[in-house]
Design a protein around this nucleic acid. Structure first.
Length: 462
RNA sequence: GGGCAGGUGGCGGAGUGGUCAAUCGCAGCUGACUGUAAAUCAGCCGUCUCACGGCUUCGGGGGUUCGAAUCCCUCCCUGCCCA
């Protein structure tokens, strides 16, 4: 049984760092942790995606902090809930996955999470699957669970999600999500703006939405999307996990608050136990813009060191401090210093972002990989040079360059390869190739082919 | 069970007998710009072809026609309303 650490300073930091809210309150949770009792906590992960992203990393990082204190950490694979498909923030029905695919993803998750969380050693984190208990629930059990909530609660929750509209600032074009009052749409038909006028988080001007805005259409579509009955049952499924594992604490993103609180209710009702809920901030910059795939700067934990480094470098400057706070374990005092330094015009934010990128790669791939990724970035992105290590690709003498590019998977089709050449995106040893008829010749042996901004291949004739 | 509206390229959404490989927006790609991004600007954006020009696409199948995403039949699917 590992020793539980009750260092007040450490506990305070864990309860502060990156934390949005704690239910029922921080004080009670602190007392629990200070008591020396070993608690059991978990966070659930949806296994329908092949890789974990930076948002998951934030919760995993929080789990790891508890692990270091000696508490019992469960990494829950939501294979059952994943099959239903969490309707949170999603409009489309999720495709069904086979058991095999889910297990494969879960196995990969373990690897991806291990930069933060230890699955071996003295206090290893446990992996559990919620299908283990959820599959066994009977219809009677389900009714029992459902009786703990009212229809109104579930419907209100759905409506709330559906009334988050994307608001676009009329002055600077900045977009953010904002709740829209239910009756507003009808009134709005005759007015110019909808929603309560608010200050744009980006430029600060008073703004609203133009009624002709595309955004409007999106909101309409959301509101018109029917609520499937099973969507209302989702919080039950997730909430039941808390009961089945009999946990003391659940961690999750702020968007999971409702589901996590459902678990709190059930745990109190069924096991008569106080379950704490800790929600974490979203990893976003100060204007509320989320890191996501649509912004082209998503970080996935299974990315290569170079890609991960590059992805972090493409974050906006406003994300630097929060990135340090949530995705690394650099001491808060140091982060405060960085925050201060960022305010100084003389400092280049890029340098701090490079440190963050380095840290992230170090956690997930090790020091050596971080070093490599950093040098690589400086070389090819900043100095636009060719990286040290370039993948080799065999070519035949007399082969068409177009065919070669497609074979090396640097273009999707012949047409795509030709387009890239015609648009000046292809070069050999720095010399731009414009002729799509170019043929691989003996003299190209060993030279570096570049396609697009950062794809390189060494041509090996043979 | 009854009535109605629909199913178009990765997504949203035009088109409703030839001028449609299919307007447009988003996403994506290439280039310029930049400390990295974002934003912006220019171009591209089914596929084969140096090109001319083919080929395969508008839920599935069948039909009408010189010619169909567009008309008819049928099947499948989705949503709404009534019961």
């Amino acid at each position: 049984m590992p020793q539980v650490i009750t260092d007040e300073k450490l506990i305070d930091e864990i309860l502060e760092r990156g934390v949005e809210q704690i239910f029922p309150d921080k004080k009670t949770l602190k007392e629990k942790l200070m008591s020396g009792e070993r608690i059991r906590l978990y966070c659930g992960y949806d296994p329908t995606a092949p890789s974990l992203h930076i948002g998951n990393a934030v919760t995993i990082n929080k789990l790891s902090q508890f692990q270091k204190l000696g508490h019992e950490v469960i990494f829950l694979v939501g294979d059952f809930t994943g099959m239903i498909g969490d309707p949170t923030d999603k409009t489309a029905t999720r495709k069904k996955m086979t058991r095999k695919e889910v297990l494969k993803n879960a196995e990969d998750y373990k690897k991806q999470a291990s930069g933060y969380l230890k699955f071996d050693g003295e206090n290893p984190a446990k992996i559990m699957y919620n299908s283990e208990w959820s599959d066994k629930l009977s219809f009677k059990d389900l009714i029992e669970l459902a009786s703990k909530f009212t229809l109104q609660q579930m419907i209100d929750r759905e409506m709330f999600k559906r009334n988050l509209a994307v608001v676009k600032c009329r002055y600077c074009g900045f977009e953010w999500k904002s709740p829209i009052q239910f009756g507003t749409i009808e009134n709005f038909k005759s007015s110019t703006l909808i929603g309560n006028k608010t200050n744009c988080p980006n430029c600060g001007k008073m703004t609203g939405m133009d009624k002709e805005d595309i955004v409007m259409k999106e909101l309409d579509r959301l509101r018109e999307t029917p609520i499937a009955f099973h969507e209302l049952l989702y919080p039950l499924a997730q909430g039941y996990d808390s009961v089945a594992m009999n946990v003391d604490l659940e961690i999750g993103g702020n968007d999971q608050m409702f589901n996590m609180l459902a678990g709190r209710t059930l745990q109190k009702n069924i096991n008569n136990k106080e379950k704490f809920v800790m929600t974490l901030k979203l990893l976003s910059d100060e204007t509320g813009k989320k890191m996501g795939k649509s912004e082209g700067n998503a970080v996935f934990l299974d990315q290569s060191p170079e890609d991960m480094y590059g992805a972090v470098m493409s974050w906006t400057d406003g994300t630097i401090a929060i990135g340090f706070e949530m995705a690394t374990n650099i001491p808060m005092e140091e982060i405060e210093k960085i925050k201060e330094a960022l305010k100084d015009e003389k400092n280049n934010p890029r340098d701090f972002k490079m440190k963050l990128a380095y840290e992230m790669v170090k956690i997930n791939h090790g020091e050596e990989a971080a070093q490599f990724a950093q040098e690589n970035f400086i070389k090819i992105v900043q100095k636009k040079e060719v990286p040290d290590e370039v993948k080799e690709e065999k070519a035949k003498n007399g082969e068409k360059l177009v065919d070669f590019i497609v074979r090396a998977k640097l273009a999707e089709s012949n047409a795509d390869a030709k387009r890239k050449i015609e648009q000046g995106g292809v070069s050999i040893d720095g010399e731009i190739i414009k002729d799509i008829q170019t043929v691989i010749s003996e003299e190209m042996n060993g030279k570096i082919l570049k396609v697009g901004k950062r794809e390189f291949r060494k041509i090996i004739i043979g």
